[in-house]
Structure formats: C-alpha cells, structure tokens
Amino acid sequence: MVIPIEWYLVLSAFLFAIGAAGVLMRRNLFIVLFSIELMMNAVNINLVGFSRLHENLIGQNFVLFTMTVAAAEAAIGLAIVTALYRNRRTLMVDMFDVMKG
C-alpha cells in the first residue's frame, strides 16, 4: 500500500504545531531549542513527502540543506546558551529581562 500524501502532511503539521507551542510556552531554554529543531524537522517530513509526490529530487535536495543549516543553528544556539549560563547561572527564559521598555 502506498502511503497517501495527506498522512505526511498531517504528521508534519502536528509536529510543527507541537514545536511552535513548545517555543512559545516552555520556560527552559533547552526545551525551547529542541522545539525549534522539531519545527525544522517537521518541515523536512513535508519536503520529503512532497518530493515523493512530485517524483523529483528537489525536495530531498532541500532537506540536505535544511539539515546542514539546522546543525549550524544548533551549534550556535548551544554556544549562546553556554555563554549565557556562565554569566547568569540559569536557563529559565523568563529570567532574562535585564532590558525592558
């Protein structure tokens, strides 16, 4: 049985929504970083599914780029978290409110 494209879309939409909700609602910086990864990977499922639907490789190609960028972003994100943790000793995002107005 061929899995219909809708299944991919529904899965990806759910993962993306979970990721977006995580970014907006969770307080721990690490969970927020994971949630962003989840959003990017939801997009990857979309792209691969569409790639199969259209029977061309552009989507798969795109996924390679997205994964590379996601890896770079994760590295940068962790570097920023490390620098922040050394100065503040906390990872709760709502504690970072030195600047306001």
Binding site: V23, V32, M39, V43, F50, G59, E73, F96
Partner: peptide, 29 residues
Amino acid sequence: RSNEAAMKYFLTGAFASAITLYGISLVYG
C-alpha cells in the same frame, strides 16, 4: 546584556526561519 541580546535574537530568528521554511515547503508541495 550582550548574551541576552544574542539569545533573544537567536530564538526569534530561528523560530521565524522555521515558519518561513514551512511556508516554502508548502509552495514546493
């Protein structure tokens, strides 16, 4: 302050590019 600026820029920026990317994937679809 600089740490916080980087963190806030990173979180909103990465969130935004994930949203853009989802839109782009729909266009490809």
